[in-house]
Computed example of a mutant assay.
Amino acid sequence: MSMVDNAEQADSKTEQGTDQQTETKQGSKPVLSESNQIELYKARDRYIKRAKRKGSNRTELEKYLHQDFKIVKPTHYKKAESITKAVLYEYHSYRDQIMQNLYSEIKQVLAGTEKWTINTEGELTTIYPKPVVSGDRVRDITYTEDRAYYYPPELWEWMMEQEELEHYREINRTRRSSIKRIDNEQVRLWLYYMDERGYSRKQLADLFLVSNALMARRIKKYKQEQDKQDEQTLKTKQAD
């Protein structure tokens, strides 16, 4: 067993031990506050390591925080949200890099030179290179008569996200930005990046090539519109 495997097992046991302790000793949990900086840094690093190995999302992170800390006051919840967003951002940045590397490796294989071979019918035929993916890496290359290639599902989903992102970046790059020019679909994507991927509004404005102030105004307008729709829906239900 490698040192990496040993380290991962040790981390896993530490996490399990921590979870078991928090479940059986609820009264001993530290308070989630600014005065507890060492515990906060340790927890953040622990969550990031766990996320990189197993994946993560907002629901899981909130569960871990409530297991490990007392979260009672509004300031505690505010700090919990700050940690959650920091871990989500770190994790998704890490996954983006992994997916980018895998995409580059696959494209390099697919761009390789085809070969000639004799098939089972004794005919001369062309075979094309195909990547053999295991985990998040290309581990080998095989050759088949079928030129089509189907990307791994997770990578394909990432590619669609990148395509959508680039679509809006191109719109914002080539057109003068204004509240009216930014549709609700783009705003919903902004909110997804903030809520589920941990982006700050400043980071998001840079990513989508719009100003921070414009983004703030457009999000506010979108939420006001949603509130009005919700009110209308409630009135309609009450009338029925």
Rank of each mutant, 00 (worst) to 15 (best):
Q16N: 07
D183I: 05
R147S: 09
T236A: 10
K29Y: 03
A51T: 13
H92I: 03
I48A: 01
S82T: 12
R147A: 10
K180H: 10
L209V: 13
Q100A: 10
K202L: 06
P74T: 09
P153S: 13
D136V: 15
S82V: 00
N101I: 04
Y168I: 09
T22F: 01
G135C: 04
T125Q: 04
D206W: 04
Y77M: 04
T233G: 11
V87C: 04
Y143C: 07
E157P: 07
K54V: 06
T117I: 00
E123V: 07
E185A: 13
T14H: 06
S200T: 15
I83E: 10
G55P: 14
L61S: 08
N212E: 12
N119W: 02
K13D: 15
R44H: 05
Y89D: 13
D206E: 11
M99I: 05
E34V: 12
I141S: 10
A239H: 14
Y77R: 13
P74S: 02
W158D: 13
Y150H: 14
T142D: 13
Q224S: 13
A213K: 07
P153H: 04
D136Q: 06
E62F: 00
T233Y: 05
H92N: 15
L124E: 15
T117C: 06
E166R: 07
P129T: 11
G17R: 08
G122K: 09
Q229Y: 04
T18P: 00
Y41D: 15
P153I: 04
D206F: 04
E34G: 01
A213R: 11
P152V: 03
V187A: 11
K221F: 01
A216W: 02
R58I: 02
A43I: 05
V132K: 10
I83F: 01
F208M: 14
A148F: 01
K78P: 03
Q37N: 09
D140Y: 09
P131N: 02
A7H: 14
Q238Y: 08
E225T: 14
T126D: 00
K73Y: 08
W190P: 06
T84W: 01
L191V: 09
K221E: 07
S177V: 03
